[in-house]
């Protein structure tokens, strides 16, 4: 009995000291809090608060003018059961992300790997060639010129010349072509941050490991890639995956620029478009917040999934 109380006392005293210790540490490090404060305040204001606010507003019918009423799950129910365009947008977003995400990831890695053994000067130039489209603003509009609907468009003219078609194709106004073309264009702009991270990661692999591998009988570059390179750059692979996922689910700007809004028959309508349509054009903030929450959940969920897969790579 007395033993038990003693134990209880000991536990609670331990808790106290833990809290006291934390408090002491906090007081000792007051300057650290002051130093992170400016960034953390701005970050919270424009990242954390907006996410929380979206979550709250998604249960209301807020329209920016009147005080919001709580409508509970109505927005979500409408989205999934009454809004066919939203379901189209979901399908398109998933098709898009499942193609462009992995493809841009693989492309970034393969190109970085291909150029890894080039002399530094040449590697720098090739890096620029592959990286340039991702930083050049709206330069992707050139694809609109190349695939222009009239015979002055280079692609149409060439196809006519070769006799493959008898009439120009309005590529960006034809539901059959819109999606594949937008996928190609966005792949073209997708060798960005992840690509640079892979280049740096490959450069950073310890040369001694390769030499040891060569001695230990690594037969070809594929074995070297699998047994040495990939395991040593897992952190970069993880970072690159996050960049690729965020980029591929956040896709929409290229479609609007090339196909107009809405795209023909909603053939390339994505969740981002739906969100901007209700939030930015119609001011149905409650409804668009529900869309934002779903997009948020999809992005974070996809990241968690891919993280799990990547932790098993090349062990």
């Amino acid at each position: 009995m007395s033993n038990k109380t003693a134990e209880k006392k000991a536990v609670s005293r331990k808790d106290m000291t833990m809290m006291q210790w934390t408090w002491k540490e906090m007081k000792k490090n007051w300057l650290a809090y002051l130093m992170v404060a400016p960034y953390l305040i701005i970050f919270s204001l424009f990242t954390i608060v907006p996410v929380l606010l979206s979550a709250i507003l998604s249960f209301t019918n807020f329209n920016m003018l009147e005080w919001p009423d709580i409508v509970w799950l109505d927005n979500y129910i409408t989205l999934f059961f009454d809004d066919d365009i939203f379901l189209t947008a979901c399908t398109n977003t998933f098709i898009f992300a499942c193609i462009v995400g992995p493809a841009s990831y693989l492309l970034s890695f393969l190109v970085a790997w291909f150029i890894n053994e080039l002399p530094p000067k040449i590697r720098a130039i090739v890096t620029l060639i592959f990286y340039a489209p991702s930083i050049s603003g709206q330069v992707y509009l050139i694809w609109g010129t190349l695939f222009s609907a009239d015979s002055y468009g280079w692609v149409n003219a060439t196809l006519l010349e070769l006799g493959l078609i008898d009439k120009e194709i309005a590529f960006f106004k034809d539901a059959n072509y819109v999606m594949p073309l937008c996928i190609v264009v966005s792949l073209w702009t997708s060798l960005g941050t992840a690509f640079l991270s892979f280049i740096a990661g490959l450069q950073g692999v310890d040369r001694a490991l390769y030499e040891a591998g060569a001695v230990d009988g690594v037969k070809n570059r594929w074995q070297e890639l699998y047994y040495i390179t990939l395991p040593s750059m897992r952190p970069q692979l993880m970072f690159g995956a996050v960049m690729a996922i965020t980029g591929s689910f956040g896709f929409g700007g290229i479609v609007t620029a090339l196909c107009g809004f809405p795209s023909v028959d909603y053939a390339a309508h994505t969740i981002v478009h739906h969100l901007e349509d209700y939030g930015g054009q119609r001011y149905e903030v409650g409804y668009s917040s529900a869309i934002a929450v779903i997009l948020f959940a999809i992005m974070v969920g996809a990241n968690a999934l891919v993280k799990k897969i990547l932790s098993k790579v090349g062990v």
């Binding site: 953390l40 606010l53 965020t246 956040g250």
Partner: peptide, 30 residues
Amino acid sequence: KFPGGKAMFKTIQTSLMFNSTVTGITSFII
């Protein structure tokens, strides 16, 4: 090293996983 530092960085790192389209409309309100 200070209490909460790790959690702060973890939160910031998590925010790399979504982009400004998610926060755009509520940022407008703020």
